[in-house]
Design a protein around this nucleic acid. Structure first.
Length: 401
RNA sequence: GGGGGAAUGCCCGAGUGGUUAAAGGGGACGGGCUGUAAACCCGUUAGCUUAGCUUUCGUAGGUUCGAAUCCUACUUCCCCCA
């Protein structure tokens, strides 16, 4: 018994396309009826200066709402960054100092601007209000939460059970985030599904402040390049929005096959029909299309095409990349019979230590001018130019004085 | 305040006097293969011009022919009781 959807229901569906959950749809429907731009809050902690595709999932969603006429309210969490969001952490986060937070915030905005139109967004820093609050204000905020409720959270439950310490300040984090919602009078707050608890606390705190509770919309979490854990810079499984084209392309090529569909959906604007066709075909081709599509978003079509061509050249055909760093060896590295390969490798940072360099040679991972180096004692003769290669993808041209 | 426990290599984690530079796993790196920096298989994973030497198991001392393993003090952390 399907009924004809009311106009607001249509709006709700459009609003929520691609999201995971919404608390509550009824609230959202009534907010949409206000026929004014909704204030969409996204809180970001400048804890790490580099944004990656995981952040972009949220930014891209925000961009869509922005294009529907809503107003993104970006909260730069310079205060919250100094506390550290415990979500998903099995250890207390390092607390940032004010300068680090400020510097990170700057680069954050630069990168967010690749996705969002910052001229049509409101940007605020939560230090503006938290720095003014006194200790008693914080206590009052703390009265909002019960220890039992906090301990129900998986993050804390796990840590508590494992005997990993939990700082009191970490309990305050969700309350700070909730307080932000009051300050900016958020209509809607968005975040990853792992943020559900934090988002919902905002509803309670807003209600108490005599405001309409915000609608909480959660978005899927993008898995990292390992295909298992969530994308995160500290896990080293992230594709940075600032990554140069070839690196971005290459990293996407290392996404496990099973995650391709998810990446297409969350990171690209590709038409679902086309995606289906691609996924039905050669996985190699599909992934190349994915990599190209993503690279084009953060660079341009041209750069993506070049990155794609270079990838084929370097990895499929075992050729040389476009740009190879070049440098001249310092003279103190060069002896009468030339420059010792082990020293050259460590000097160029192609190996972290002499022992590691020797190991690489033993493993057959070092080539000079395309020839595998067999002898650890090999020298690059004086006055020569040499192309040094380690593994499949690290190249360096050196001039031996 | 009282009692108990823990600190090991990039991470997790075994190891309670002697082939222990330290099991196993993860990660990373290298090789092979390929459809890619997927998957799979193999190898490497402290430093040092390396058949050898030096340093490493929270810190500082001590016992011993010999210690990550025993003792003392210190530091840090966790748990339980109050």
């Amino acid at each position: 018994m399907t009924e004809t959807p009311l106009p607001s229901e249509v709006d709700v569906r459009g609003f929520l396309a691609g999201t995971v959950a919404c608390h509550t749809e009824a609230d959202l429907a009534s907010k949409l009826k206000l026929s004014r731009p909704l204030r969409i809050k996204l809180g970001v902690d400048p804890s790490s200066p580099d944004l990656h595709l995981g952040h972009a999932v949220q930014l891209r969603y925000l961009r869509r709402l922005q294009d529907q006429g809503h107003l993104p309210v970006l909260i730069i969490g310079d205060a919250t960054a100094r506390v550290g969001d415990p979500t998903g952490r099995n250890a207390t986060r390092p607390q940032l100092n004010a300068e680090q937070a400020a510097a990170n915030a700057q680069t954050y905005l630069e990168q967010a601007g690749q996705v969002l139109d910052l001229d049509r967004a409101e940007i605020v820093h939560n230090g503006d209000w938290f720095d003014r609050m006194g200790f008693m204000d914080a206590i009052e905020l703390g009265a909002f939460m019960t220890v039992a409720r906090m301990l129900e959270r998986d993050t804390f439950a796990t840590r508590h059970a494992a005997g990993v310490p939990i700082g009191i300040h970490e309990f305050l984090y969700p309350l700070m985030q909730a307080r932000d919602s009051v300050e900016v009078r958020a209509d809607v707050e968005i975040g990853g599904t792992d943020q559900t608890f934090n988002l919902l606390v905002g509803r309670d705190v807003m209600r108490d402040a005599g405001l309409e509770p915000q609608v909480c919309v959660t978005l899927p979490i993008l898995p990292g390049l390992d295909g298992v854990q969530k994308m995160s810079k500290s896990l080293g499984n992230a594709v940075g929005l600032k990554d140069p084209p070839t690196e971005m392309f290459g990293k996407v090529m290392s996404v496990p096959d099973a995650q391709m569909a998810e990446y297409f959906g969350l990171c690209t604007d590709e038409d679902p029909q086309r995606v289906e066709t691609l996924l039905a075909g050669s996985p190699r081709e599909a992934k190349a299309a994915l990599a190209r599509s993503i690279t084009a978003i953060y660079h341009d079509e041209d750069a993506a095409a070049r990155a794609s061509a270079e990838f084929d050249r370097v990895f499929r055909d075992r050729g040389l990349p476009d740009e190879i760093p070049e440098s001249e060896l310092p003279t103190d590295l060069v002896e009468d019979d030339g420059a010792w390969i082990v020293r050259v490798l460590t000097h160029l940072d192609l190996a972290p230590s002499g022992s590691a360099a020797r190991r690489l040679i033993k493993e057959g991972g070092v080539k000079v001018d395309g020839e595998k180096v067999q002898d650890e004692q090999a020298r690059l003769s004086r006055g020569s130019h040499a192309l040094v290669q380690v593994g499949k993808r690290r190249f360096h041209r050196v001039v031996v004085p």
